[in-house]
Amino acid sequence: MSAAITLKEAVKWPDLLASGHRLCAGCAEPIIARLVLKVRRGATMATTATGCLEVATTIFPYSAWRIPWIHTAFENAAATASGIEAAWRAMRRRGRGPLAKYEILDVIAFAGDGGTYDIGLQALSGALERGHDFTYVLVDNEAYMNTGIQRSGGTPYCAWTTTSPAGTVIPGKREWKKPIDEIVIAHEIPYVATVSPAYPLDVMRKARSAFEVEGPAFLHALAPCCRGWRFPPSKTIEVAKLAVETCFFPLWECRVEDGRPLYKLSPPSLAIAKRPERKKPVEEYLRVQGRFRHLFRPKRREDLIDNIQRWVDRRWGMLLEKAGL
């Protein structure tokens, strides 16, 4: 059971994403993928939408995947995962085919924010509506990183990207981050959770829960990208932690029971809910990242920092209400 996972035990479990991949030094994506794959229950298949994780783990003729893995185009990770699950069920029913012998199969789709908030949204929505038993992992580094840091629906307000350049005309991206979790939860799927690579045990417990539920599960992972967010590679976990400590990216899980979404805060965010004085100002998160530098230099943009703080506070308040706190 998921509650039994401990670091001491998990350190002995094999890594199914091998060393020798070519993601940047300090990248959060392989940290997340390793943690999710560690807790798979048995037979596992994965598919990855085009993006950093896919491209850098499968440079011909090498592959870092130690499980059956299928390349997917940018827009259809959820459709490919649906197909894997449907093929497995058909083989089970007929009692023949290479997947027929597996009583359980953990099917995982990994996709970036571009591949989820934007181009992959309809494939995701369709797969959730059809109710396939699979786990979708959104690896959210808040821009199209693999093609050179273009803004996406997941890029936060005021972030510099190459297509939302901060200057005299605009202060970085003008729109807010799309509330993807609410969109997913509106599909009434059994399990949705946010995860952060800074909290490995929380990631592994939630990934196990995602595998265990019958039907679609969605894990939203924040994946700080030193390259695109402009911070030193050694700070990836520090930045991921600040996102949680400022409530910019709170950690929670949501299960649908009797047709109702039941939100539960996870330990790091629950601690802040109980002791609100521990909630750090969002500025602490912004100022360590070069993509927000223009909020502080050459002139401090109090108006914009305030806008972001109000957005964080409003969404944190909504989350507390939903969690009955």
Binding site: A18, S19, G20, H21, R22, A25, T57, T58, I59, F60, P61, Y62, S63, A64, R66
Partner: peptide
């Protein structure tokens, strides 16, 4: 089509840093 057939373990990244 193109199927990656070698484990990435054969590609050493230790000289990156």
């Amino acid at each position: 089509g193109a199927v990656p057939y070698k484990p990435s373990l054969e590609y050493h990244t230790g000289d990156w840093g």
